[in-house]
Every structure is written in structure tokens, then in C-alpha cells.
Design a protein around this nucleic acid. Structure first.
Length: 574
DNA sequence: GGGCTAGGCGCC
DNA sequence: AAAGGGCGCCTAGCCC
């Protein structure tokens, strides 16, 4: 059963029963209850934008099992090389290309009533966000997508899996926002005070930074503002140091008394600006950090985030991620996800064998391809990213001889990109075309009057795009594996059912009180927040989901995806 | 004051 | 130790 949720022209919510062809008007204040009622029939909810529709439902205590996110599906179908029956111009003026709604700071969002339009009205002049697609527009888009899928022939089932996984990911993203990462302000502040000294007054630097700045100045014979790259570069050169930049790795090579305090300053200044007291004030409330994930936000299918930097939580502050009393964190990541995905999608049994039951890089060493684990890692990264120089460029060809199928797959993807072509992931997400500027460069280089400089520029640009498409197929298919993993974890955790463990306060929201739920996702890593008595069961769910994801994507291909998994109270202890 | 880029660095 | 792919976000410094 499919139910389409959208707004009538009047702005009132409507539920279109797509199978029965019946339109049901719903009063704004009855919508959440009505969705909950209909959820008993296990429908697939079809809607314009998961973030818009699902966040208020979650806040009202309503979980849905399945959805189809029209905006995300449209982006995939428009670009997919497996789809030629989808007119990219159809509906182009209906605002589907608009990015999802703007970030609303936590405090104000919490106060936003269900389905209020004030946010949009307050930003008059902007394009309407996706939520305001009328029921008619949403239905038309849905029909275009169905028709495109039906015409996709043999690729349709993989595309359908991709769309289902993408939509399930969008549900997870909204649910992570609702549940929130348990974040201990006191623990975070302890980290900051230990590193930087007490919180300074507004406009002042923390004590430790001032001390280090003075040390640097003394060593360089004059006051220095280390936050200013230009000032710092001048001071270093005045002291007789030959430097091209102020990057930490370049400074590390220098032997001078200013360097140690300078590197320490850079590290601490980074902590302060990225995850200092200001970040705590803005992003942590009621013991939760609520990331604003953007599923499908990266062309490869990886998620992006907007604000808060949830994809870059530095190791230094992970001690602040602490389970609620009586709860645990199940922290799991996949060892070497991308090379394993590559081995499976290429059907490279030799590489699968190197990975089976052990560290993939150790397996490569045992096969005698390279001498050390570090070399194996650098070679593999070099092969997947297209390294042309350095150790990666030197070592990657050895992998080509040992694992010709896997390396052939990425080499082929690179060649397609260098010619300006489109590559696709296993499930059918396709790379974008290179820009008009890029094509102009190639075209200029092929003219009879092309100069050597034209040819050099074109070749450089072609190789650069080839590195992108080379990586696209691996990164994108790994993202698909991760989406399937997330979707299976979500289903498995829900099936565990509720416990009597009250969440501390209501921080996790009404849907997750007493229930194990996902609270973090980072490309190949998840964190589940679970009642202690359910933690082992949740860990089993996470493991089983990894096996299921592998089956969904690769059938019975002989590649395993082992997890590093820990049940802990603190993220930092995983 | 806002918009922009560059440099730099955090994550995978 | 970086390189080689993908990002977000901070500051400084420049522009209008």
C-alpha cells in the first residue's frame, strides 16, 4: 500500500491513497494521529522530503516503517545512466532542485509547532522548500519515477533497492536528529579546560593559547599572531626559516624552538574554534547533540551534514559522548569497507580471499604482494584514489598484477572519466558529467592550433576527472552498502521492542524512550544507544545487519565484512 | 555588513 | 609523512 502525503493547494495536508485513488483531507492538528493510525497497515509513505514530513511526526511520537523520498529519488533517477525514460526537464520548474530546508538552531526548532509554516513565511523571497509541493505535483513526480523504473528493464530491481535504501537512510537521519547523540557537557568542558585553561571572557583567548603565543613570539624575536597565516609566515621567514606554507606537516620538518609551541598552538586553536565552548553552546542541549545530516548530500551518495560538523568529530572530544545512566553505546565500524566492496563488485576472488577472516592488508602481505601492512594500505588507497606519485603511485601497480579484476574495474572507471564519460555504482547511481569548462579544455586541446600548454592543461584536467570517477564507483558502492546496513539495523533494533529503561528525561524523544536506536553514522561506522539489558541484542542486530547488507548487494559473493564492535559507556573507550 | 576565496585541518 | 578521492567548517583577508 502506498500513501502519498502532501499539501493541497490551500496548504492543508492531504493523504492520497494511491492504490484506491482516494484523497483524504486531514486537519493539521490531526495529522500525526492519522498517520499513526494508517501506519498499522504498513504502508509506504510517499512524500516530497523526509526531513520536512518526518521530523514533526517523530516529535509527536510517531514512527513510520517505510517511505519513498521523492526529492532524493528524483536526483538519482535523473542522473542514472540506467534510466533513459526520465525526462530531466519534467517538473523542473516545481522546485525539486531546491536544497532541503535551511538549518534551524536546536532551541528554536524545539519550539516550532507541528507543521507550522512560519519558518517558510519568515524567509519570504526564498524558493519554496520541497515540502510545499502540492499533492498534484508530488503525484506527477511519483508517476514519472514509476514509469522510469518500469522502463529500466534489467536494472530496475537494483535501482529500486537503491531508492528504498536511500529513503530508509533519510528516515534514519531524521531519527538520529530526534534521538540525538548523548553528550555530556561536563565531560566536554573538562577536556577543554584541561587543554586550554578556563573559558575566557568574550574577546579573549584562553590562557594556554596566550602562553603559547608568548613562547612563539619569544622564539621568533617579536610578537606574532599565529592565527594570521600571513603574519606567521613573515615571522618565520624573518627568523631565517625557509617555509612555503604554515601547514603543520611542513613545520614539523623544521628544527627551531618556535616550532613545538606553534604546533601545539595550532592543535589547540583548532579544538577551540571547531569544538570549543561556542560549539557546545550552539549544538548541545539537554544532553544531546543533534546532527543535521543531509542524506545523499555528496554526489557519490555519501551523507553530508550542515552545521555542527557531525562528520568531523575529532577524537579529542569523543570522551564527551557518554551513554545515559543504565544505557550503553554499541560502537561498530567496518574494517576496510571500500576495498572489500571493490573486491565484491569486481568479483575478484583473489582479493576476497586476502580479506576473508582477517585484516585485508595483512592478507595482501601474506600473499607476498608487498612487504608490510603499511605498504599494503598505501598501495590500496593509491589504487582507489588514483595516486600517481609517491609511495602510493609506486606500489599500486603491484596490486594490479595480484588482483587484476579489482584493479581493472577502477582503472576502467578512470578511463571513462578521462574521456568525459559517466560511471555508475553497483546499484545505479551515476556520476555527474564534467563541467562545461572541462569540456572546453578538452575541445581546445584537440584543435589543430592547440598549444602544448593547452594540451597539458587538458591532460591534467582529464586525469583529475579520471581520479574522481575512479573513486566514485568504490566510494559510491560503499555508501550503498552502508545505507543497506543502516536500514537493516533500523529494522532490527525496532523489532527488539521496548524495555522498561526510561531514557533520562525525555532527551531521546517519545519514539525512542526505552528503545535501542541509532544515534550516529559516519560513512562506515555507527553508534547505537541501547538500554544496558538490550545492548548485547543490539550488537547482534548490528552484526546481522552487516551480513544482510552484503547479501542484498552482492548475493553470495565470497567477501566478508567484519565489524570492529564494542559495547561501552563512552565513545572514547571503543 | 555580507559575500567570497584561500589556507588550513578535522573526519572517512 | 604526504600523496591520491570525498567532504564541512573555521579564520583571515579581500572585495563590494
Amino acid at each position: 500500500m502506498q500513501l502519498l502525503l502532501a499539501r493541497a493547494a490551500s496548504g492543508a495536508p492531504s493523504i492520497v491513497h494511491l492504490d484506491a485513488g482516494v484523497v483524504e483531507r486531514v486537519a493539521e492538528d490531526r495529522l500525526a494521529a492519522r498517520v499513526a493510525e494508517l501506519e498499522a497497515d504498513e504502508p509506504r509513505w510517499v512524500w516530497s522530503d523526509t526531513r520536512h514530513w518526518y521530523r514533526p511526526l517523530l516529535a509527536a511520537g510517531v514512527r513510520v516503517e517505510r517511505c519513498h523520498d521523492l526529492r532524493l529519488a528524483r536526483a538519482i533517477l535523473r542522473a542514472s545512466a540506467a534510466v533513459d525514460a526520465y525526462d530531466p526537464e519534467a517538473g523542473a520548474d516545481a522546485g525539486w532542485e531546491a536544497p532541503p530546508e535551511e538549518h534551524v538552531p536546536t532551541a528554536r526548532h524545539a519550539a516550532t509547532p507541528l507543521f507550522e509554516l512560519g519558518e517558510f513565511e519568515a524567509s519570504a523571497g526564498l524558493k519554496p522548500p520541497a515540502d510545499l509541493h502540492s499533492a498534484a505535483e508530488s503525484m506527477a513526480e511519483h508517476e514519472r519515477q514509476e514509469a522510469a523504473l518500469e522502463a529500466a528493464g534489467a536494472d530496475a530491481s537494483r535501482l529500486r533497492l537503491l531508492l528504498a535504501a536511500e529513503s530508509a537512510g533519510a528516515l534514519v537521519a531524521a531519527e538520529i536528529h530526534a534521538g540525538g547523540i548523548p553528550w555530556r557537557r561536563d565531560a566536554h568542558e573538562s577536556v577543554l579546560v584541561a587543554a586550554l585553561g578556563d573559558r575566557p571572557p568574550v574577546g579573549r583567548k584562553p590562557r594556554r593559547l596566550e602562553e603559547l603565543q608568548a613562547e612563539i613570539g619569544a622564539a621568533l624575536d617579536g610578537p606574532v599572531q599565529p592565527d594570521s597565516q600571513a603574519d606567521l609566515l613573515r615571522a618565520l621567514r624573518r627568523a631565517g626559516l625557509t617555509v612555503r606554507s604554515t601547514r603543520a606537516w611542513e613545520l614539523q620538518e623544521l628544527d627551531h624552538p618556535a616550532i613545538a609551541p606553534l604546533l601545539e598552538y595550532k592543535k589547540l586553536a583548532r579544538l577551540l574554534s571547531a569544538n570549543g565552548w561556542h560549539w557546545l553552546d550552539e549544538w548541545v542541549r539537554d544532553g544531546r547533540f543533534r546532527p543535521d545530516y543531509l542524506p545523499g548530500g555528496v554526489v557519490t551518495g555519501r551523507w553530508a551534514t550542515r552545521g555542527g560538523g557531525a562528520l568531523q568529530l575529532p577524537k579529542a572530544v569523543r570522551g564527551a559522548v557518554v551513554a545515559d545512566p543504565g544505557w550503553r553505546l554499541v560502537v561498530a565500524d567496518v574494517a576496510q569497507l571500500e576495498p572489500r566492496v571493490l573486491a565484491a563488485m569486481a568479483g575478484d576472488d583473489a582479493m576476497a580471499e586476502a580479506a576473508r577472516g582477517r585484516d585485508l592488508y595483512d592478507g595482501i602481505v601474506q600473499r607476498g604482494v608487498v612487504a608490510t601492512r603499511d605498504e599494503a594500505k598505501v598501495a590500496m588507497l593509491g589504487a582507489m584514489y588514483g595516486a600517481s606519485s609517491g609511495d602510493g603511485g609506486r606500489l599500486a601497480p603491484r596490486l594490479g598484477r595480484a588482483y587484476p579484476r579489482a584493479m581493472g574495474l577502477v582503472d576502467e572507471a578512470a578511463q571513462v572519466g578521462e574521456r568525459g564519460g559517466v560511471v555508475s555504482t553497483l546499484l545505479g547511481r551515476s556520476s555527474p558529467l564534467p563541467s562545461a569548462d572541462w569540456r572546453a579544455l578538452q575541445s581546445a586541446a584537440s584543435q589543430p592550433d592547440a598549444t602544448p600548454a593547452d594540451e597539458r592543461r587538458a591532460r591534467t584536467a582529464a586525469r583529475e576527472w579520471g581520479r574522481f570517477t575512479r573513486n566514485f564507483v568504490v566510494q559510491g558502492t560503499a555508501a550503498e552498502w552502508a545505507l543497506c546496513w543502516l536500514a537493516e539495523i533500523r529494522i532490527g533494533l525496532h523489532a527488539l521492542g521496548p524495555t522498561d529503561s526510561a531514557s533520562s528525561g525525555t532527551a531521546s524523544g517519545p519514539v525512542f524512550a526505552g528503545r535501542a536506536h541509532l544515534v550516529y553514522f559516519l560513512h562506515d561506522e555507527v553508534i547505537v544507544h541501547a538500554p544496558a539489558e538490550q545492548a548485547e541484542a543490539a550488537a547482534d542486530v548490528v552484526r546481522a545487519a552487516a551480513e544482510r547488507a552484503a547479501e542484498l548487494l552482492f548475493g553470495d559473493a565470497p567477501v566478508d565484512f567484519p565489524l570492529d564492535l564494542a559495547v561501552v559507556e563512552r565513545y572514547a573507550d571503543a
